[in-house]
Amino acid sequence: MTKRGRPPETDARQIARVALGLFARHGFDRVTMDDIAEAASVSRRTLFRLFPAKSDLVWDGLDDVRDFVRRRAAELGPAGLRAGGVLREFAEPFLRALEDPEAAALARQRLRLLAAAPALLAHPTLREIEAVIVTTLAPSEPGQAPPPLVVRTLIAGTFAALMWWAEHGDGMSALEATRAALRALADDRDPCA
Rank of each mutant, 00 (worst) to 15 (best):
A181S: 15
G80W: 05
E167R: 01
A156C: 13
G171H: 04
S140T: 06
P93I: 06
L121T: 01
E167T: 09
I129S: 06
V132C: 01
L62E: 03
D35W: 08
L126P: 07
A103G: 04
A160M: 15
L149S: 09
L22W: 03
K3R: 15
E75M: 10
D56N: 01
A145G: 04
L185H: 04
L182P: 13
L87A: 03
V69H: 07
T10Q: 13
R70K: 07
R82M: 11
R189Q: 09
S41M: 12
A73W: 00
V58M: 00
A24S: 15
A180M: 14
D170L: 10
R30G: 13
M172G: 02
D188K: 12
A105F: 07
F48N: 11
L87P: 07
G85T: 01
A180F: 11
R6P: 15
A166S: 11
L22P: 02
V134Q: 02
T2L: 14
F68T: 08
D190S: 11
G61A: 05
G77C: 08
M172A: 14
G169M: 06
F90L: 00
R127E: 03
E9P: 15
M163A: 05
A161E: 06
L76T: 00
C192P: 03
S43M: 07
F68V: 04
P118F: 01
D35H: 11
S43W: 03
A74N: 06
T135Y: 03
A105D: 06
I155C: 11
L106R: 01
G77P: 01
F23G: 00
D188Y: 12
A97R: 05
D170A: 13
E167I: 02
R152K: 12
L154M: 05
R49T: 14
R127N: 09
D170C: 10
R96E: 02
A104L: 05
T10V: 15
A37L: 11
F159Q: 13
A174G: 04
A122M: 02
A24V: 14
E167S: 00
D34I: 09
H26P: 14
A116C: 10
A160F: 15
A145F: 01
M1A: 15
F94T: 10
L57R: 06
A107K: 00
W164L: 13
S41L: 12
P147W: 06
G21M: 04
A12D: 03
E92A: 05
